[in-house]
Design a protein around this nucleic acid. Structure first.
Lengths: 205, 205
DNA sequence: TAGATTGTTAATCGATTAACAATC
DNA sequence: TAGATTGTTAATCGATTAACAATC
């Protein structure tokens, strides 16, 4: 398979998400354009980078296309496929809410641990998985095969905890704090701070 | 000022964030490269698109550079500058946490209202600002000059509520749901679902 | 069939990198 | 000064769009 560029990869991830929720049996590049705003030519080009020649003159079979994207990108949807283990770092209001709101329930992502440097948080809160003091990160994360982290600590602690996550062998983290994190090249960071998002909106309008 | 492309704009927003937290008086493109990973040539080129010639042979004055980015992009930091009014739609665990965790406290973004279609949520919860049943969106949003929304409803309601926000005259929304939203061209959407973020990480590694 | 759609190549457009004189 | 850094132009690289034969 050809290498897939960053913009193409992000579009395909979005498309996979869309397909996983769609009830339509078939879909065309024109319909995808309507739903996503990406041009239909671009969509066909993106799809052509996968090893997938399923398209016919009346479009794609949604399930087949989804499967092709998943196999091309190493994704899976809807609990099937291998579970990927995650942890939540920072159990303040936001971290606790993410932990408890069940947003990963129908995904292959499974939370295996929560961490906080404040003992009273790990003792007061309860979850379907164990909560640990932050001091346990370096042992629990490799021990439980945790690959990804959700970082929801206070801004002041963000880089410190990111460093510990990296040392613990994490492969990627979702950064909900307002800080920009410095991590090594092998660790992937996705910045999804709501404040940063609002700033990006404000700068655009 | 020259027009600023999407990638440049996002880099500058990140840089502004970084500068607003930095305690260093001066900064160079080399230091910015170390902190962000963007190449120093690219950073200088980005900065050159602003109407700002403050750089000298030993770098930039951090405050001046921040001010230039803010004025070029229409941003402001640290409560100063005009307040921008926001609302939260969906007061489940996640929405309530964002409402209560004070993440916008030191920003120009100010939450003026919370909405939920379930009356018991708006009655049980409390906040520094009023909570309304979703039926009030179309009157409260224009009435309170609310420009931006944080969408934190269940996936099933996401498009429905997005439509109502658009009808209410919102200019941008931060989408925390897993759904892709269809909105008109004038409304800006930032997708920051943690699940989507994890999928993007997984597809990258 | 006629019309819509795919897969792919070629053309265009835009973004990043390289290079360097000017500056302190 | 010497060395580091900026601002900017030219060169390169890569991503998007246009175009169209092949397909159903």
């Amino acid at each position: 398979m050809k290498t897939i560029s960053e913009p193409t990869r992000r579009r395909l991830v979005l498309l996979a998400n869309l397909l996983s929720r769609s009830k339509q049996e078939r879909i065309t590049s024109v319909k995808i354009q309507e739903m996503t705003g990406f041009s239909r030519d671009l969509i066909r080009k993106d799809i052509s980078l996968l090893d997938f020649k399923g398209g016919v003159s009346n479009g794609y079979d949604s399930k087949e296309l989804l499967a092709a994207i998943c196999s091309g990108l190493g994704l899976s949807f809807g609990e099937k496929g291998e579970a990927r283990f995650c942890c939540i770092v920072g159990l303040g209001k936001l971290g606790a809410a993410i932990m408890q709101c069940g947003m990963f329930d129908k995904t292959p992502f499974k939370i295996k641990a929560g961490f906080d440097s404040r003992v009273n948080r790990t003792e007061v809160l309860s979850a379907d998985f164990p909560l640990y003091p932050a001091a346990k990160m370096e042992t629990v994360i490799p021990g439980e095969n945790i690959e990804f982290a959700i970082l929801a600590v206070e801004d002041e602690q963000a880089q410190l905890m990111a460093d510990r996550l990296v040392r613990s062998g994490i492969r990627g983290m979702v950064n909900l704090t307002g800080e920009s994190l410095s991590v090594g090249d092998e660790v992937v960071v996705e910045n999804i701070s709501p404040v940063l998002a609002l700033e990006n909106i404000l700068a655009k309008i």
